[in-house]
Design a protein around this nucleic acid. Structure first.
Length: 595
RNA sequence: GCUCUCAUCGUCCAACGGCCAGGACACCAGAUUGUCGAUCUGGGAAUGCGGGUUCGAUCCCCGCUGAGGGCGCCA
């Protein structure tokens, strides 16, 4: 139907005949001559209708064209000349003088403009996603996603990985993310679960001897949604045998470097920076620190009792911590009003308040220390504080006094809010990659008053920490690693346990009995007893990777058909109720009265 | 489960509790031979739903629905 795309013709094609197909982007009627911008995903080409060439009939038909009509145009490629060339268009050196015009399909006026410049709300875009996907910005992101997937597959193939598909329909496993359940028609009252990840299948592939496995896998989690979380998302999932942490981190880095090179044309430095989980939490209040700016968090717990400020003193007496960060030279940028907003922000995260001090021109003068915490601090404590926080003229200090976890949450979030939004210290394409490794194997759960697995119960502890499993589980660190980019966890994994003795000790520390372990994970334990090789792996969040690579505002902008925050598909308008007949076939009764 | 923000023409925004709810783009009609986010003239087009306060509500209050951000959750 066409000889060229709308992004293809150049000055060298002048004089030749061409047939183009596409959507009418724009219609400029000058009376004697009509210009049409014809669009497809490859670009725009200007088509000219002149009655001397297309005839009175052709011109009359061109006059009827409206936005988004689908047309086929045959004509002659002519040079626009120096004066009329459009330098903003790849095809701007030429234009097509139409001889014949065929309307392939008419179109209703779209609910929003298919235009790069138009600002359109997301709800409207999602309702007519097929129109939204016509826009160049969305096409650019989906094509980047395609390139990244191809690039990743080539990388893993070249490194000896085998891509194996694993089931989406699998077994409900307790713990971890909530599963979507799928009722079985053939087995009354029984359910499959949609896979929240291929974790167990890939470990079994290692037992089966597949060495190096990779899969671009759909995963399903019935949890609440976020800016970077969808109920259905894609992982680049991998697992390797006869390796240790270094090997996996090497492959992970290699993949990231390949993607950035092949999709963005960017050379990433090697090797990536590394820090332990403990360092990350202590210095940045987060297990996924954004390193595009500094502002480290400084511990002041030993200073607090001498500070003279009772809020700090009481926090320490309650076995909490006192920490602070210094926003250098931020005084002018942070108005009193902004600081009030930031205080509300901190309260929203569970803080009782947010103590801050604005430093004036001369940090040695008491009157140049202003803010809710300033006047309570003794002169001696102030001098010590100035030394520890490297206080200079125009700085603004922020304090957190609470439990370790509470202070990390609040100061970690305040630091990011300052760096990204208030002080604008972060550029989207300043790629600060980082490995955060060796997280604690267990985390104390206030809810259940017991230790729970931080990652999953097959994560391997450091051999030298195994001795603490029974006596002091909180001290045990794991062979785990997360790849972090600009404050986002883009991938993570661990070395797995492959011997029964360690696995038993880990289960005991979690309070899982032999019997319970058999019931929940029997099939994996069974498989591990048949000669499981030492193995480990990781998984990347493909959607998040693409979101960061394309500077998208949310994960929804890199998914062709995403769900809203409440898990609805605005275009299909689902989920929906089903008929009584369907429910009957599935042996299901709902407790909800349908309208 | 909790919390915050938002909801006005097709779209994006505006409107001290009071005047015909205003503008831009889009759309429709007309004009126009070199535009390209064309231009000019004219036109049609809206306060999410349900209560309340008030002489009077787009505006204030309550509830609902929907969208978005966050906490919890996401081993």
């Amino acid at each position: 139907m066409r000889t060229h795309t709308c992004g293809q013709l150049r000055a060298t094609d002048v004089g030749s005949s061409t047939t183009l197909c596409g959507w009418v982007q724009n219609n400029r009627d000058h009376g004697g001559v009509i210009f049409i911008d014809l669009r497809d995903r490859h670009g725009l080409t200007q088509v000219v209708f002149d009655k001397d060439i297309c005839g009175e009939e052709g011109k009359a038909l061109a006059d009827k064209l409206r936005g988004e009509w689908v047309v086929q145009v045959t004509g002659e490629v002519r040079s626009r000349g120096e004066k009329n060339a459009n330098k903003n268009l790849a095809t701007g050196a030429i234009e097509v003088f139409a001889k014949t015009l065929t309307v392939l399909n008419q179109a209703q006026t779209p609910p929003f403009e298919i235009d790069e410049h138009a600002k359109v709300g997301e709800e409207v875009r999602l309702k007519s996603r097929f129109l939204d996907l016509r826009r160049p910005a969305m096409q650019k992101r989906l094509i980047a996603r395609h390139k990244a997937m191809q690039s990743a597959r080539r990388f893993f193939d070249a490194n000896g990985f085998v891509e194996v598909e694993t089931p989406a329909l699998c077994k409900y496993t307790p713990g971890g993310a909530r599963n979507f359940l799928v009722p079985s028609r053939l087995h009354q009252g029984q359910f499959y679960a949609l896979a929240e990840s291929p974790q167990l299948f890939k470990q079994l592939l290692m037992v089966a001897g597949y060495d190096r496995y990779v899969q671009i896998a759909k995963c399903f989690r019935d949890e609440d949604l976020r800016n970077d979380r969808q109920p259905e998302f894609t992982q680049i999932d991998l697992e390797m045998s006869f390796i240790d942490m270094e090997d996996i981190m090497g492959i992970g880095e290699g993949m990231a470097r390949t993607l950035w090179k092949e999709v963005l044309g960017v050379d990433l430095p090697a090797p990536f920076r590394r820090m332990t989980w403990t360092e990350a939490m202590n210095s940045y209040g987060s297990d996924k620190p954004d390193l595009r700016f500094g502002m480290p968090i400084i511990d002041l717990t030993d200073w607090a009792p001498t500070s003279g400020f009772s809020v700090f003193q009481k926090a320490v007496e309650a076995k909490g911590v006192v920490r602070a960060l210094n926003a250098k030279k931020a005084n002018e940028l942070l108005s009193r009003r902004t600081l009030d907003t930031l205080t509300e922000f901190a309260k929203g995260l569970g803080a009782k308040g947010l103590a801050w001090i604005k430093i004036g021109a001369d940090p040695s003068k008491a009157e140049d220390w202003q803010g809710p915490a300033a006047k309570n601090i003794t002169p001696e404590a102030r001098a010590e504080l100035a030394r520890r926080l490297d206080v200079g003229p125009g700085d603004v200090l922020f304090f957190g006094a609470d439990s370790f976890k509470g202070v990390c949450t609040v100061l970690g979030a305040v630091r990011v809010e300052l760096g990204r939004n208030l002080l604008k210290l972060a550029k989207w394409d300043d790629w600060q990659f980082l490995w955060v490794h060796s997280a604690p194997l267990y985390e104390w759960s206030e809810e259940s008053h017991s230790f729970v697995a931080n990652h999953h119960p097959f994560t391997c502890p450091y051999p030298e920490h195994v001795q603490f499993l029974a006596s002091d589980p909180g001290k045990v660190l794991s062979k785990s690693y997360d790849m972090v980019l600009n404050g986002n966890e883009i991938g993570g994994g661990s070395i797995r346990i492959h011997d029964a003795a360690t696995q038993g000790a880990v289960f005991r520390a979690l309070g899982i009995s032999e019997e319970e372990a058999q019931k929940k994970f029997g099939f994996l334990l069974h498989a591990l007893s048949f000669g499981a090789p030492p193995h480990g792996g990781m998984a990347f969040g493909l959607d998040r990777l693409i979101m960061l690579m394309t500077d998208a505002e949310s994960i929804r902008d890199v998914i062709a058909y995403p769900k809203t925050q409440r898990g609805r598909d605005e275009m299909l308008d689902c989920p929906t109720p089903v008929s009584d007949r369907q429910l009957k076939d599935l042996h299901i009764v709902t407790t909800v009265q349908q309208a």
